[in-house]
Nucleic acid binder design. Structure first.
Lengths: 206, 206
DNA sequence: CATCGAATTGAACTAAATTCAGGTCAGGAA
DNA sequence: TTCCTGACCTGAATTTAGTTCAATTCGATG
């Protein structure tokens, strides 16, 4: 669900609705291609009302990205927390990565397509805050994958090599899927899970 | 070099200069962040003159992407043509992928960051032509990698599995590097070549 | 009831890409 | 040489979308 962020929202807040509409449009039609005013229409408010919730269209995009990163990170931690064997944890993390709702698929797509936005500072205050937040999540996710690989090396499950580099490669494999995956396409999410899990085990294993 | 495209260019054409300036700015500062007029300044012409060479800023971007895809494809074919063993061809293709000039690094970055542009049709004529061109190159590159993997399976060098899926994974690994690689960063291009070549051999091998 | 802040609005503003309506310039034909 | 043509270029005007502004409505709370 999109709700339950830290900040308490008033009962007649349209924030969640805006995010949902934005995710659908940004994900389906692309960020630059969607007119900000169209989101307002879909939610049933005037364009100006959007600025009560987000400082800008870009701020909304960054929020969507940050939310999805936070969710992914949390999910990773949940499913790997109580799995001591690194190879099992690796498979669990990958399974979790593809255990997503249709809307989360769109969010991952948006995330992949606009990751470059996180590289350069934003002029406006709240955008920059959200960007930093997102960057932090990215770093934490990379750290989690690295720690997982290191754990496997320490336990002897994986041969000793550059853990961070390997983690980067594995993570890239996992997320690159969202660039081409389409529901109803040649491969199902289950197919993808199997494909990537096997590949990851091979990359990191003996 | 950026020149030697099919179309003969007049001697005082600034097209190559525009492309070079655009690659630098789009690659360094990002496409949306660079002002089209700034490119004109850098080349030493008025903003309107840009439209003599490109129908739009997006058309220029699509041209850059298409050019880089064409170059990559050609290079792949060159280095794998006379290598019969699939595993050697795989390593050659990966080596070639990272044997690039600084400007080509930027072009690959631009390509990765805007691949999603190829998914949806363009309203304007020449943009759409360039998009189709780029999509064709993408398809051909995917076909080349797939054929390479299939060749390996047929020869027994790689175990039989879903060749297209595996090729997609390998190609994704190869190109995902451009999202994070920076000259002077933790890993050199030689490091990257080794890292990805090893990973690819593991993914596709026994 | 009074009030406060969240939520909303129409009208005006702005930045940047693009179009328009015409110039200039170099090189080949007459 | 002069003329002509098409490549190349320009300043001014237009367009489009995102954004700001000043002012208003609504609902809960004291």
């Amino acid at each position: 669900m999109v709700q339950d962020v830290m900040e308490r929202e008033g009962p007649r807040s349209k924030r969640a609705g805006i995010l949902a509409a934005a995710i659908d449009s940004f994900g389906q039609d692309g960020y630059e291609h969607t007119k900000w005013a169209k989101i307002a229409d879909e939610v049933g408010i005037g364009q100006t009302a959007l600025y009560h919730y987000f400082e800008s269209k870009a701020h909304c995009l960054l929020t969507i990205m940050s939310l999805e990163l936070a969710r992914s990170l949390q999910r990773f931690r949940e499913v790997t927390a109580d799995v001591p064997q690194a190879d099992a944890a690796l498979r669990a993390a990958i399974a979790a990565a593809y255990d997503v709702s249709p809307r989360e698929v769109l969010q991952m797509r948006i995330l992949q397509n606009h990751m470059d936005l996180l590289a350069t500072p934003r002029a406006s205050e709240r955008e920059e805050v959200e960007r930093q937040q997102a960057r932090k999540h990215v770093r934490e996710i990379e750290d989690e994958w690295t720690a997982l690989v290191e754990r496997g090396m320490a336990s002897g499950a994986f041969p000793e090599r550059d853990a961070r580099a390997l983690a980067t490669v594995v993570l890239a494999m996992v997320v690159s899927v969202w660039r081409w995956y389409r529901p109803g396409g040649r491969l199902s999410l289950d197919d993808v899970r199997e494909l990537i899990a096997d590949a990851a085990v091979r990359v990191v294993g003996p």
